[in-house]
Design a protein around this nucleic acid. Structure first.
Lengths: 396, 396
DNA sequence: GCCTTCATTGAATCGGTAG
DNA sequence: TCTACCGATTCAATGAAGG
């Protein structure tokens, strides 16, 4: 169980995790808590156990699939299929594979922040084992996601459906993890303004993106496309976050993380792969600023109480607010509440009450007459928020 | 553990399974081995255990998904989402769900023919448990298949990817099940002549197809679209086959089976669902003949030895055969073999030899000059097969 | 330089029958 | 049950080579 690290700073008991790590570049932290932007060579469970608990924001794992191939397969033109026959994909039984899976998933869960999430990719050979183990260990599945391959290898014998997809599982640390990172609005904006679905369509990793060895042969049997990793990282991490990959291989996760302004920790058993990954990542340019940061989502913008609008003089106590059609009315009170008949309460509570609904968004439900037209309270909130932003900019 | 059957004829120890059951209508069999085209009300494991072993050709299972929903969900317009909250979907733990899953999968495997296959549909809530149990019980996964929903329910909270697909697992009885039914050519022909992939695209079951109760409410929470079942049955069964569904619900499997000329056995715990299914299926018209039978695949057509072409005078001993480009040549011998230099052997052996390949399809590799153009031997074989078909027709 | 043709390749659990 | 042998089977993308 020897630890073969080239960097073990993160294992120091004196290190501590920055509470604000998410957006603060790790280099600027007082202590260097994590061996960040490096590739650690060695067994991934041992490496994980040397890292501080609850210290990484996102994990992407592409474990061995346990393909269980026998014999050789030829194409109709008699050429040989170059199958995955690497030693790292050999397991003697499902029980052995399950034990392996539980070990690395357990070690990952200790290292993952309480609000962090994990992606695992697999095929039908292994993904059901992985999914069951995830659930048994306390992870909470948020989605399963299908990578539909634009150009899969055909079924050469005509005995099955073309195996044209792989499955990713996206899981949170725990069932009660509610504040995980998910850039819903950014994904929607980049998807013709409809929400991103659980079926993704990407081509395989081929061409110049595919790393080759000195003989021009593929360096790694299962290199994943950068586009796939980019979607994962953009969806579920922020610039400055630490993304860990326990099966780093030739470093696709690290390459994409660096390009998108994230930090990575790569764990890899094979020094040849690790060296290739380091060289690859060194050639990547790190983007920063608006190119990689998610546009501010509504839910992350500063909360503005309705009272602030009254205090700012944007709404006058005694004014009448109505719904869009003018059917429902209420009076604005000086304390930032509304009254409708005998009832007094927040803009949301009163909005729900007059409609007989369990809940209501008062910001979009209630309107005021401004410039001869009805405008939702939300418009006034936008004005306030813009002022807040200007003040912050002046202060900085 | 009482058995609550309305029909137990199939449980008789004297019943036997027709060896030729696949294409012979069960009604014409000497003994009635199975309660076919009926809905058996009761616990599905008990029902399964009353059926003879290895007697059904295909199983389609849509088990409870164990959704683990808590509280209620409302849409942005405050309407209530009608979630699956039925008692049949309540389990206390993963262990309890696993025990349930193993029980019905074990009972199904006993009833499934050795060359039969099983489909299970599920979501990320349960499919990993199901897949692991399948593998542990000795089933052999052939494909996982993704049903991409054309019109999925959106994610109303904007906290996850739209859950836009469900997963089917297609598994054979055992790892050594090789001769399962799979209408590869039919699927390919119906798919613009490219092989059918593992990602399918269908709309949800809505509109007139969706069964409603007296109040106009949906009768069953999870009714599946008939198009999905039709693809399953057309791909993996033959007309006259027996298709079993252990979670029959409102009988989509039965309705599609009847329409496509298959027989069904429906197991359902709830008499209300069972009654609705019977009524639904009674209104279905059974198709037969070429509308539902797969066109004969090349690999199922009668074997014709090359000697038969020589004997029929379609090929003359001493003629020269060449490959498509004329690069390789061989001489036809009177005994239906070829010779190339000193080597003598079958059209396949000599074809493999001259190319240096381990195997070769001599029918498509070797060509003869006919009408001034090169034609593959396969064209002449087609002629012979047509004559054979005419003789059979005359004899009948 | 552009168009056509041909060869290569990608996480693959990839036969059936007669003797 | 084992052996021999018949003979069925590929899609999209990339890139090199040829015209």
């Amino acid at each position: 169980m020897g630890i073969a690290f080239n960097h073990v700073a993160g294992a120091s008991p004196r290190s501590k995790v920055s509470r604000t790590g998410a957006r603060v570049p790790v280099q600027q932290a007082e202590f260097q808590p994590l061996p960040v932007d490096e590739v650690l060579v060695g067994d991934c469970v041992a490496s994980l156990n040397s890292l501080p608990a609850h210290s990484v924001d996102l994990i992407f794992a592409d474990p061995p699939y346990n393909l269980q191939l026998e014999g050789t397969l030829t194409r109709p033109d008699n050429s040989l299929v170059d199958a995955v026959d690497d030693a790292w994909d050999k397991f003697n039984s499902f029980a052995e594979y399950d034990a392996f899976t539980r070990a690395w998933l357990t070690a990952c869960r200790r290292v993952l922040k309480k609000n962090g999430t994990l992606f695992v990719i697999g095929s039908y050979h292994n993904i059901f084992r992985v999914g069951s183990s995830l659930q048994d260990l306390g992870y909470w599945i948020l989605n399963d996601i299908v990578w539909r391959k634009a150009n899969p290898m055909p079924n050469f014998r005509g005995r099955r459906f073309t195996n044209a997809h792989e499955t990713l599982i996206w899981a949170a640390h725990s069932a009660d993890t509610k504040n995980y990172t998910f850039h819903y609005e950014m994904l929607k904006a980049g998807n013709d303004d409809v929400q991103m679905r659980s079926d993704w369509h990407f081509p395989l990793c081929t061409g110049d993106e595919r790393l080759k060895d000195a003989n021009g042969q593929k360096l790694h049997a299962t290199q994943k496309p950068e586009a796939l990793l980019a979607r994962v990282l953009l969806a579920a991490s922020n610039p400055g976050d630490v993304v860990l990959d326990p099966f780093f291989g030739t470093g696709t996760t690290g390459a994409v993380a660096k390009r998108l302004g994230r930090h990575f920790i790569g764990l890899e058993r094979d020094p040849v792969y690790a060296a290739a990954a380091r060289e690859r990542i060194a050639g990547i340019e790190r983007l920063s600023g608006p190119a990689v940061s998610a546009a501010p989502a509504k839910r992350t913008e500063p909360r503005v109480p309705f009272l602030a609008l009254v205090e700012a003089g944007l709404v006058t106590p005694g004014e009448i607010v109505t719904d869009h059609s003018g059917r429902h009315r209420a009076v604005v009170r000086a304390d930032g509440t509304l009254c409708a008949g005998p009832a007094v309460g927040s803009i949301h509570k009163i909005g729900a009450l007059v409609q007989g609904f369990p809940s209501c968004n008062g910001w979009t439900f209630w309107h005021l007459e401004r410039n001869g037209a009805l405008a939702p309270l939300d418009d006034l909130r936008t004005t306030i928020r813009a002022e807040i932003a200007r003040e912050i900019a002046r202060a900085a």
